[in-house]
Design a protein around this nucleic acid. Sequence first.
DNA 1: TACAATTAAATTGTATTCAATTTAATTGTA
DNA 2: TACAATTAAATTGAATACAATTTAATTGTA
Lengths: 151, 151
Amino acid sequence: MKKPAKDEFAALRLDNQLCFPLYAASRLVIKLYKPFLDRHGLTYTQYIAMMALWEKDDVAVNELGERLFLDSGTLTPLLKKLETSGFIRRERDAADERTVRIQLTGQGKKLQKAMVDVPRQMASCVHIGRDEAGNLHELLHDLIRNLSKTG
Amino acid sequence: MKKPAKDEFAALRLDNQLCFPLYAASRLVIKLYKPFLDRHGLTYTQYIAMMALWEKDDVAVNELGERLFLDSGTLTPLLKKLETSGFIRRERDAADERTVRIQLTGQGKKLQKAMVDVPRQMASCVHIGRDEAGNLHELLHDLIRNLSKTG
DNA sequence: TACAATTAAATTGTATTCAATTTAATTGTA
DNA sequence: TACAATTAAATTGAATACAATTTAATTGTA
Protein backbone atom coordinates (compact mmCIF):
# COMPACT_ATOMS: atom_id res chain seq x y z
CA MET A 1 0.00 0.00 0.00
CA LYS A 2 1.34 3.37 -0.97
CA LYS A 3 2.05 5.86 1.77
CA PRO A 4 0.83 9.40 1.07
CA ALA A 5 3.93 10.53 -0.78
CA LYS A 6 5.84 13.49 0.53
CA ASP A 7 5.81 15.92 -2.37
CA GLU A 8 8.92 15.10 -4.35
CA PHE A 9 8.67 18.50 -6.06
CA ALA A 10 8.33 20.55 -2.87
CA ALA A 11 11.63 22.31 -3.56
CA LEU A 12 10.27 23.54 -6.88
CA ARG A 13 7.45 25.51 -5.23
CA LEU A 14 7.72 29.28 -5.56
CA ASP A 15 7.25 29.75 -1.83
CA ASN A 16 10.04 27.36 -0.93
CA GLN A 17 12.75 29.21 -2.79
CA LEU A 18 14.78 32.16 -1.66
CA CYS A 19 15.11 33.58 -5.10
CA PHE A 20 11.49 34.27 -5.90
CA PRO A 21 10.74 36.26 -2.72
CA LEU A 22 13.91 38.26 -3.37
CA TYR A 23 12.87 38.97 -6.93
CA ALA A 24 9.28 39.80 -5.98
CA ALA A 25 10.20 42.01 -3.01
CA SER A 26 12.79 43.88 -5.04
CA ARG A 27 10.33 44.69 -7.80
CA LEU A 28 7.58 45.66 -5.36
CA VAL A 29 9.85 48.07 -3.50
CA ILE A 30 11.11 49.61 -6.74
CA LYS A 31 7.53 50.11 -7.86
CA LEU A 32 6.85 51.86 -4.58
CA TYR A 33 9.69 54.30 -5.34
CA LYS A 34 8.23 55.34 -8.65
CA PRO A 35 6.02 58.28 -7.59
CA PHE A 36 8.81 59.75 -5.45
CA LEU A 37 11.35 59.44 -8.26
CA ASP A 38 8.99 60.62 -11.00
CA ARG A 39 8.84 64.02 -9.32
CA HIS A 40 12.56 64.39 -9.87
CA GLY A 41 12.57 62.88 -13.35
CA LEU A 42 14.60 59.80 -12.40
CA THR A 43 14.05 56.10 -12.91
CA TYR A 44 15.10 53.73 -10.14
CA THR A 45 18.31 52.68 -11.84
CA GLN A 46 19.17 56.29 -12.54
CA TYR A 47 18.50 57.04 -8.86
CA ILE A 48 20.94 54.44 -7.56
CA ALA A 49 23.53 55.61 -10.09
CA MET A 50 23.12 59.14 -8.74
CA MET A 51 23.39 57.84 -5.17
CA ALA A 52 26.65 56.12 -6.02
CA LEU A 53 27.93 59.36 -7.57
CA TRP A 54 26.86 61.46 -4.58
CA GLU A 55 29.04 59.19 -2.47
CA LYS A 56 31.97 59.34 -4.86
CA ASP A 57 32.29 61.68 -7.77
CA ASP A 58 34.57 61.57 -10.80
CA VAL A 59 34.67 57.80 -11.25
CA ALA A 60 35.10 55.60 -14.31
CA VAL A 61 32.12 53.72 -15.74
CA ASN A 62 33.82 50.55 -14.60
CA GLU A 63 34.07 51.59 -10.98
CA LEU A 64 30.48 52.77 -10.93
CA GLY A 65 29.49 49.43 -12.41
CA GLU A 66 31.27 47.50 -9.69
CA ARG A 67 29.38 49.35 -6.98
CA LEU A 68 26.02 48.82 -8.68
CA PHE A 69 26.74 45.35 -10.10
CA LEU A 70 25.94 46.68 -13.57
CA ASP A 71 28.01 46.52 -16.75
CA SER A 72 28.66 49.02 -19.51
CA GLY A 73 25.84 47.53 -21.55
CA THR A 74 23.40 48.87 -18.98
CA LEU A 75 25.35 51.90 -17.83
CA THR A 76 26.37 53.47 -21.12
CA PRO A 77 22.83 54.30 -22.28
CA LEU A 78 21.74 55.16 -18.73
CA LEU A 79 24.62 57.59 -18.25
CA LYS A 80 23.94 59.18 -21.62
CA LYS A 81 20.40 59.85 -20.40
CA LEU A 82 21.62 61.33 -17.12
CA GLU A 83 23.93 63.53 -19.18
CA THR A 84 21.08 64.67 -21.41
CA SER A 85 19.05 65.41 -18.25
CA GLY A 86 21.92 67.62 -17.09
CA PHE A 87 22.86 65.75 -13.91
CA ILE A 88 26.28 64.48 -14.99
CA ARG A 89 29.11 65.01 -17.47
CA ARG A 90 30.88 62.17 -19.29
CA GLU A 91 34.48 62.87 -20.23
CA ARG A 92 37.22 60.71 -21.67
CA ASP A 93 40.14 60.51 -19.30
CA ALA A 94 43.05 62.40 -20.90
CA ALA A 95 45.58 60.06 -19.29
CA ASP A 96 43.79 56.93 -20.52
CA GLU A 97 41.48 57.50 -23.44
CA ARG A 98 39.80 54.15 -22.89
CA THR A 99 38.06 55.23 -19.72
CA VAL A 100 35.16 57.64 -19.40
CA ARG A 101 34.95 59.54 -16.14
CA ILE A 102 31.59 60.58 -14.72
CA GLN A 103 31.25 63.90 -12.95
CA LEU A 104 28.30 65.50 -11.23
CA THR A 105 27.15 68.85 -12.60
CA GLY A 106 25.93 71.61 -10.31
CA GLN A 107 22.41 70.46 -11.09
CA GLY A 108 23.38 66.90 -10.18
CA LYS A 109 24.69 68.05 -6.82
CA LYS A 110 21.61 70.14 -6.18
CA LEU A 111 19.50 67.08 -6.84
CA GLN A 112 20.92 65.41 -3.75
CA LYS A 113 19.60 68.18 -1.53
CA ALA A 114 16.24 68.03 -3.29
CA MET A 115 16.00 64.27 -2.73
CA VAL A 116 17.27 64.13 0.83
CA ASP A 117 13.80 63.25 2.13
CA VAL A 118 13.10 60.42 -0.31
CA PRO A 119 14.47 57.67 1.98
CA ARG A 120 12.29 58.89 4.85
CA GLN A 121 9.24 59.12 2.60
CA MET A 122 9.90 55.61 1.38
CA ALA A 123 10.39 54.30 4.90
CA SER A 124 6.98 55.62 5.83
CA CYS A 125 5.49 53.49 3.02
CA VAL A 126 7.25 50.29 4.01
CA HIS A 127 5.87 49.35 7.39
CA ILE A 128 8.72 47.32 8.74
CA GLY A 129 10.11 47.44 12.26
CA ARG A 130 13.57 48.71 13.09
CA ASP A 131 14.74 45.25 14.11
CA GLU A 132 13.31 43.53 11.07
CA ALA A 133 14.85 46.12 8.77
CA GLY A 134 18.23 45.78 10.46
CA ASN A 135 18.02 42.03 10.30
CA LEU A 136 17.02 41.95 6.67
CA HIS A 137 19.74 44.42 5.84
CA GLU A 138 22.42 42.28 7.43
CA LEU A 139 21.18 39.04 5.84
CA LEU A 140 21.09 40.65 2.41
CA HIS A 141 24.58 42.03 2.76
CA ASP A 142 25.89 38.62 3.79
CA LEU A 143 24.19 37.12 0.77
CA ILE A 144 25.63 39.75 -1.56
CA ARG A 145 29.13 39.35 -0.16
CA ASN A 146 28.74 35.62 -0.63
CA LEU A 147 27.51 35.90 -4.21
CA SER A 148 29.87 38.55 -5.47
CA LYS A 149 32.80 36.41 -4.33
CA THR A 150 31.47 33.42 -6.31
CA GLY A 151 30.72 35.30 -9.54
CA MET B 1 32.85 76.59 16.38
CA LYS B 2 31.25 74.05 14.09
CA LYS B 3 30.86 70.53 15.37
CA PRO B 4 31.89 67.82 12.92
CA ALA B 5 28.53 67.58 11.16
CA LYS B 6 26.74 64.24 11.17
CA ASP B 7 26.29 63.42 7.49
CA GLU B 8 22.94 64.92 6.56
CA PHE B 9 22.83 62.68 3.49
CA ALA B 10 23.57 59.43 5.31
CA ALA B 11 20.13 58.05 4.39
CA LEU B 12 20.94 58.51 0.71
CA ARG B 13 23.87 56.11 0.83
CA LEU B 14 23.43 52.88 -1.12
CA ASP B 15 24.43 50.79 1.86
CA ASN B 16 21.91 52.42 4.15
CA GLN B 17 18.89 51.53 2.09
CA LEU B 18 16.93 48.31 2.06
CA CYS B 19 16.03 48.61 -1.57
CA PHE B 20 19.46 48.46 -3.13
CA PRO B 21 20.59 45.29 -1.34
CA LEU B 22 17.29 43.69 -2.34
CA TYR B 23 17.77 44.70 -5.94
CA ALA B 24 21.43 43.65 -6.02
CA ALA B 25 20.88 40.31 -4.28
CA SER B 26 17.95 39.48 -6.51
CA ARG B 27 19.94 40.08 -9.67
CA LEU B 28 23.00 38.22 -8.38
CA VAL B 29 20.94 35.15 -7.51
CA ILE B 30 19.16 35.21 -10.86
CA LYS B 31 22.51 35.39 -12.60
CA LEU B 32 23.62 32.37 -10.62
CA TYR B 33 20.62 30.44 -11.95
CA LYS B 34 21.50 31.09 -15.56
CA PRO B 35 23.75 28.08 -16.30
CA PHE B 36 21.28 25.69 -14.67
CA LEU B 37 18.36 27.14 -16.61
CA ASP B 38 20.22 27.43 -19.91
CA ARG B 39 20.50 23.65 -20.01
CA HIS B 40 16.73 23.43 -20.10
CA GLY B 41 16.26 26.36 -22.46
CA LEU B 42 14.52 28.59 -19.92
CA THR B 43 15.12 32.13 -18.76
CA TYR B 44 14.58 32.93 -15.10
CA THR B 45 11.17 34.51 -15.63
CA GLN B 46 10.09 31.59 -17.77
CA TYR B 47 11.28 29.28 -14.99
CA ILE B 48 9.16 30.89 -12.29
CA ALA B 49 6.19 30.90 -14.66
CA MET B 50 6.67 27.17 -15.15
CA MET B 51 6.99 26.68 -11.38
CA ALA B 52 3.69 28.47 -10.86
CA LEU B 53 2.09 26.26 -13.51
CA TRP B 54 3.51 23.09 -12.00
CA GLU B 55 1.76 24.05 -8.79
CA LYS B 56 -1.50 24.89 -10.52
CA ASP B 57 -2.31 24.11 -14.10
CA ASP B 58 -5.04 25.50 -16.39
CA VAL B 59 -5.08 29.05 -15.03
CA ALA B 60 -5.90 32.38 -16.63
CA VAL B 61 -3.10 34.81 -17.47
CA ASN B 62 -4.50 37.05 -14.76
CA GLU B 63 -4.23 34.47 -12.03
CA LEU B 64 -0.71 33.54 -13.05
CA GLY B 65 0.16 37.23 -12.96
CA GLU B 66 -1.13 37.64 -9.43
CA ARG B 67 1.06 34.82 -8.18
CA LEU B 68 4.16 36.20 -9.94
CA PHE B 69 3.34 39.91 -9.49
CA LEU B 70 3.56 40.33 -13.26
CA ASP B 71 1.03 41.82 -15.65
CA SER B 72 -0.10 40.85 -19.14
CA GLY B 73 2.45 43.20 -20.67
CA THR B 74 5.19 40.93 -19.37
CA LEU B 75 3.34 37.63 -19.46
CA THR B 76 1.80 37.70 -22.93
CA PRO B 77 5.11 37.65 -24.83
CA LEU B 78 6.67 35.31 -22.28
CA LEU B 79 3.83 32.81 -22.55
CA LYS B 80 3.95 32.97 -26.33
CA LYS B 81 7.59 31.97 -26.10
CA LEU B 82 6.84 29.10 -23.72
CA GLU B 83 4.18 27.99 -26.19
CA THR B 84 6.64 28.11 -29.08
CA SER B 85 9.08 26.11 -26.95
CA GLY B 86 6.36 23.48 -26.54
CA PHE B 87 5.95 23.66 -22.75
CA ILE B 88 2.45 25.15 -22.60
CA ARG B 89 -0.72 25.68 -24.59
CA ARG B 90 -2.66 28.97 -24.64
CA GLU B 91 -6.39 28.63 -25.26
CA ARG B 92 -9.22 31.11 -25.12
CA ASP B 93 -11.76 30.07 -22.51
CA ALA B 94 -14.92 28.99 -24.36
CA ALA B 95 -17.12 30.24 -21.52
CA ASP B 96 -15.45 33.66 -21.44
CA GLU B 97 -13.60 34.59 -24.58
CA ARG B 98 -11.74 37.39 -22.81
CA THR B 99 -9.62 35.03 -20.77
CA VAL B 100 -6.77 32.88 -22.03
CA ARG B 101 -6.13 29.71 -20.07
CA ILE B 102 -2.64 28.28 -19.80
CA GLN B 103 -2.13 24.53 -19.82
CA LEU B 104 0.98 22.44 -19.48
CA THR B 105 1.82 20.15 -22.36
CA GLY B 106 3.28 16.70 -21.79
CA GLN B 107 6.68 18.21 -22.47
CA GLY B 108 5.95 20.92 -19.91
CA LYS B 109 5.12 18.31 -17.29
CA LYS B 110 8.19 16.28 -18.14
CA LEU B 111 10.29 19.39 -17.63
CA GLN B 112 9.38 19.42 -13.95
CA LYS B 113 10.92 16.00 -13.47
CA ALA B 114 13.98 17.05 -15.43
CA MET B 115 14.42 20.15 -13.26
CA VAL B 116 13.70 18.61 -9.89
CA ASP B 117 17.35 18.94 -8.86
CA VAL B 118 17.78 22.60 -9.81
CA PRO B 119 16.87 23.94 -6.34
CA ARG B 120 19.40 21.64 -4.71
CA GLN B 121 22.08 22.57 -7.25
CA MET B 122 21.36 26.24 -6.62
CA ALA B 123 21.45 25.78 -2.86
CA SER B 124 24.92 24.31 -3.16
CA CYS B 125 26.05 27.54 -4.87
CA VAL B 126 24.56 29.87 -2.28
CA HIS B 127 26.47 29.24 0.90
CA ILE B 128 23.90 30.36 3.43
CA GLY B 129 23.07 28.60 6.67
CA ARG B 130 19.73 26.97 7.36
CA ASP B 131 18.85 29.55 10.00
CA GLU B 132 19.86 32.51 7.88
CA ALA B 133 17.90 31.18 4.93
CA GLY B 134 14.83 30.59 7.08
CA ASN B 135 15.15 34.02 8.60
CA LEU B 136 15.60 35.76 5.30
CA HIS B 137 12.70 33.84 3.86
CA GLU B 138 10.37 34.93 6.62
CA LEU B 139 11.46 38.57 6.51
CA LEU B 140 10.98 38.70 2.75
CA HIS B 141 7.55 37.17 2.97
CA ASP B 142 6.53 39.71 5.60
CA LEU B 143 7.79 42.46 3.37
CA ILE B 144 5.94 41.12 0.34
CA ARG B 145 2.71 40.72 2.32
CA ASN B 146 3.16 44.27 3.51
CA LEU B 147 3.82 45.67 0.05
CA SER B 148 1.21 43.78 -1.90
CA LYS B 149 -1.43 45.09 0.52
CA THR B 150 -0.27 48.69 -0.06
CA GLY B 151 -0.04 48.49 -3.84
C1' DT C 1 60.23 48.68 -30.89
C1' DA C 2 56.59 45.47 -33.11
C1' DC C 3 52.78 43.13 -31.71
C1' DA C 4 50.02 39.94 -28.95
C1' DA C 5 47.28 40.28 -24.91
C1' DT C 6 44.55 42.94 -22.10
C1' DT C 7 41.41 46.43 -20.85
C1' DA C 8 37.40 49.97 -21.05
C1' DA C 9 33.40 51.44 -23.34
C1' DA C 10 30.27 50.98 -26.71
C1' DT C 11 27.33 48.24 -29.54
C1' DT C 12 24.13 44.46 -30.74
C1' DG C 13 20.53 41.37 -29.89
C1' DT C 14 17.34 39.02 -26.81
C1' DA C 15 14.32 39.15 -23.00
C1' DT C 16 12.19 41.35 -19.60
C1' DT C 17 9.37 45.13 -16.76
C1' DC C 18 5.85 48.25 -16.55
C1' DA C 19 2.74 52.30 -17.46
C1' DA C 20 -0.63 53.49 -20.59
C1' DT C 21 -3.59 52.54 -24.27
C1' DT C 22 -6.38 49.58 -27.19
C1' DT C 23 -9.42 45.79 -28.40
C1' DA C 24 -12.86 42.63 -27.54
C1' DA C 25 -16.04 40.36 -24.52
C1' DT C 26 -19.04 40.41 -20.60
C1' DT C 27 -21.90 42.50 -16.93
C1' DG C 28 -24.89 45.56 -14.74
C1' DT C 29 -28.64 48.53 -15.15
C1' DA C 30 -31.72 52.13 -16.69
C1' DT D 1 -32.97 44.99 -24.46
C1' DA D 2 -29.59 49.03 -25.46
C1' DC D 3 -25.55 50.60 -23.67
C1' DA D 4 -22.34 52.33 -20.17
C1' DA D 5 -19.05 50.32 -17.15
C1' DT D 6 -16.02 46.79 -16.31
C1' DT D 7 -12.81 43.22 -17.25
C1' DA D 8 -9.01 40.34 -19.64
C1' DA D 9 -5.42 40.26 -22.92
C1' DA D 10 -2.80 42.30 -26.12
C1' DT D 11 -0.20 46.12 -27.79
C1' DT D 12 2.92 50.12 -27.59
C1' DG D 13 6.76 52.61 -26.03
C1' DA D 14 10.46 53.65 -22.80
C1' DA D 15 14.01 51.84 -19.86
C1' DT D 16 16.49 48.30 -18.15
C1' DA D 17 19.61 43.78 -17.81
C1' DC D 18 22.96 41.10 -19.69
C1' DA D 19 25.69 37.95 -22.81
C1' DA D 20 28.50 38.42 -26.66
C1' DT D 21 30.93 41.06 -29.86
C1' DT D 22 33.39 45.11 -31.49
C1' DT D 23 36.35 49.13 -31.28
C1' DA D 24 39.99 51.67 -29.61
C1' DA D 25 43.64 52.39 -26.38
C1' DT D 26 47.18 50.65 -23.40
C1' DT D 27 50.46 47.16 -21.54
C1' DG D 28 53.58 43.57 -21.47
C1' DT D 29 57.13 41.20 -23.71
C1' DA D 30 59.81 38.76 -27.12
